[in-house]
């Protein structure tokens, strides 16, 4: 059974149209015109147990809206969601017991308390058995080094520390499903590294099914086999990153440096640039591998150096956004 099933999910927001100026302000008090904004427009996908999936898409694409509906805090306009076979709106009490959610921009920790006290509060609110709580805290301390910040008041934590705290808080009750909405937003290199390590470890050790939304392509390359690209409320791509890259950019460039200006041609590669003794070949990954091509060329001529230029993920994503 798939852990997460989303079918024909739609969300429309009603937005009050405000008229400008003083007369408009008075008018607004009596008549309100509404505009409908379709933030999520008929999306469907399923996610098997233990998979890490990334949602990416430009700002306003509908990622957070989707995550909110899957977490049960926002009612869909139409469509179905099942998390471990249960509907998060109708059966929220059961669903949250097996679900952790982190919104990167909004902390769920209690501002007035120390980090450790905030965890204790979670323990009581989510009714987590003490042994499980302590075991989880220990496991996560090993990954994130929580012990050193446990006595700091939440309002004094740096963004990176707070994010670590939020991740721990979301996992204290051992949920089998974890939603992370922009978990690496605004973090420095060190912070991102810690969060990625946490996601990988938790997925490996506990088999947690994870969905994360991100703008950071590093997150995707390091963490996810599967990518769902959303734009304007619709899914435009869904599949493994590698597949997407190969489909959108099936060609690679090979740059060969010769000892002199005598270069060779190859039937499965097109020469697209020649600059003195440096020649750029373009080839299709479907027809020949990079290694094969280098082998063939070095059989026919003496070469000094050869590098395969990988495509930039940024470019791929940009092309994918355009649809």
């Amino acid at each position: 059974m798939d852990t997460i099933v989303v079918k024909n999910l739609k969300k429309e927001y009603k937005i009050a149209q405000k008229e400008k100026g003083l007369a408009g302000a008075v008018k607004n008090l009596f008549v309100r015109k509404y505009e409908i904004l379709r933030a999520v427009d008929d999306i469907s996908f399923t996610i098997p147990k233990g998979e890490i999936t990334a949602f990416i898409g430009p700002n306003g694409a509908g990622k957070s809206t989707t995550v909110k509906m899957m977490s049960g805090i926002l009612v869909p306009t139409s469509g179905d969601i099942l998390i471990n076979g249960r509907n998060p709106q109708k059966d929220r009490v059961h669903v949250v017991q097996d679900l952790g959610v982190v919104f990167g921009q909004r902390t769920q920790l209690n501002w007035d308390l120390r980090l450790g006290e905030s965890f204790e509060m979670m323990r009581h609110i989510y009714k987590i058995p003490k042994a499980m709580y302590e075991e989880n805290l220990k496991v996560m301390d090993d990954i994130l080094g929580i012990e050193e910040i446990i006595n700091i008041p939440v309002r004094q934590l740096s963004l990176g520390q707070r994010m670590r705290g939020d991740l721990v808080a979301a996992m204290l009750h051992s949920p089998s499903v974890l939603f992370l909405d922009e978990p690496t937003i605004g973090l420095d290199v060190e912070g991102k590294y810690a969060i990625r390590k946490f996601i990988k470890e938790i997925n490996r050790v506990k088999g947690t099914t994870i969905i994360l939304t991100t703008h950071d392509l590093g997150d995707i390359e390091e963490l996810c086999k599967r990518l769902i690209i959303i734009n304007k409320g619709k899914i435009v791509e869904d599949g493994p990153l590698e597949e997407l890259v190969n489909r959108i950019a099936p060609n690679r460039n090979l740059v060969v440096e010769y000892y002199d200006e005598n270069y060779v041609e190859h039937e499965q590669a097109k020469i697209i640039n020649v600059e003195g003794n440096i020649v750029t070949y373009q080839f299709s990954k479907k027809e020949i591998t990079g290694a094969g091509l280098i082998c063939d060329i070095s059989d026919r001529a003496k070469i000094k150096d050869a590098t395969i230029k990988e495509v930039k993920i940024d470019d791929i994503i940009r092309i994918a956004y355009r649809g």
């Binding site: 049960g72 919104f103 909004r106 769920q108 609110i125």
Partner: peptide
């Protein structure tokens, strides 16, 4: 007010323990 400002109110309202009881 803080919860609404922080934008966590939806999450807070749907905790297993009623928010206003807290």
């Amino acid at each position: 007010m803080e919860s609404v400002k922080k934008g966590t109110v939806a999450m807070d309202m749907l905790k297993p323990v009623p928010l206003f009881s807290i």
